[in-house]
Amino acid sequence: MHKFEGKYAIATGGTDGITKESIICMARDGLSGAIIAGRNEERGIKAAEEIKNLTGCECYYVQTDVSKPEDIVNLFKAAKLKFPTIQILVNGAGVCPSMPIETIDAKEWDRVMNINLRSMHLCILEALKFMKPQKYGKIINVSSVAGRIGGTESSIAYSASKGGMITATKCYAKAYGDYNINVNSICPGAIKTNMIADFTYASAPESLIKKIIPLGRLGKVEDCSGVIEFLASSDSDYITGCSIDVNGGVFMN
């Protein structure tokens, strides 16, 4: 029940959805402290209070626009002031526009890449300042099944950014294994979150869902948060560079 006692985490995109639920899971298992980062201050403060009240975990919200490198630097500066170290990083921030290929210009392409892919890299660079000296760290990147097979509801920019996360995860894992730093990712499918609320398959009839998804339902955030918790724990000490598919069987590797 206390596998995360003495551990501290940072989670981008942690004010909602999969990433928030993963922090709740870890906090229930003894996580000593967490910082959740996101742009929406009202939602972030509320989420941090909820996590603290539910679990007793020392949880703070830091307003962060991950498309801005200076915000990422400030996020980790805040962590250094609040906690003795950081052992866990969950890169969960992301946007998922649903746009035809020919409508995505340079500005939109860069926006998606900066939020989804570049922010992951910059957060990892900051996290390494904690993890390399202590020779320990758990990094979990939230990718997508779209990064495996391409997107239909999501845009090409989203799919490309998530595919980049999968490949980059392997690069980080190879580069920092000697420091006892595990880097893995998860690839969710259609999960009931605010991100997919406007997608057509989110409201598809059950009969259609069963045809598309072998398990016959949309995923829940809890289906992903438990996997993230596993990757953040000592149970996954000999797993690195992997991307775990959480998609109800839509893609089977």
Rank of each mutant, 00 (worst) to 15 (best):
S236K: 13
P84Q: 07
I18F: 02
F4E: 14
M195P: 04
I115G: 04
G56M: 15
G13L: 09
I191K: 06
M131T: 08
G219L: 08
C171T: 06
G226R: 08
G33N: 08
I181P: 05
G137I: 11
G44L: 06
A27V: 08
K174G: 09
S236G: 13
I35Q: 07
E58W: 00
N53C: 06
K174Q: 11
G151R: 10
I186C: 13
C57D: 12
I124G: 09
V246I: 15
G13V: 09
K162R: 10
Y179A: 15
G6A: 01
C187N: 11
L218C: 10
E229A: 15
R217G: 02
P69M: 13
I139N: 03
W109M: 08
A79W: 01
I115W: 06
D237A: 13
A78H: 10
S185N: 09
P205G: 02
Y238E: 00
N53W: 03
I166V: 14
K192L: 08
R43D: 10
A202S: 15
A106F: 05
S154I: 05
I124Y: 04
K3W: 00
R111V: 05
A47E: 09
P214H: 15
Y60K: 02
A27Y: 12
V73S: 04
P214R: 13
E5T: 15
T12V: 10
S155K: 00
Y60Q: 00
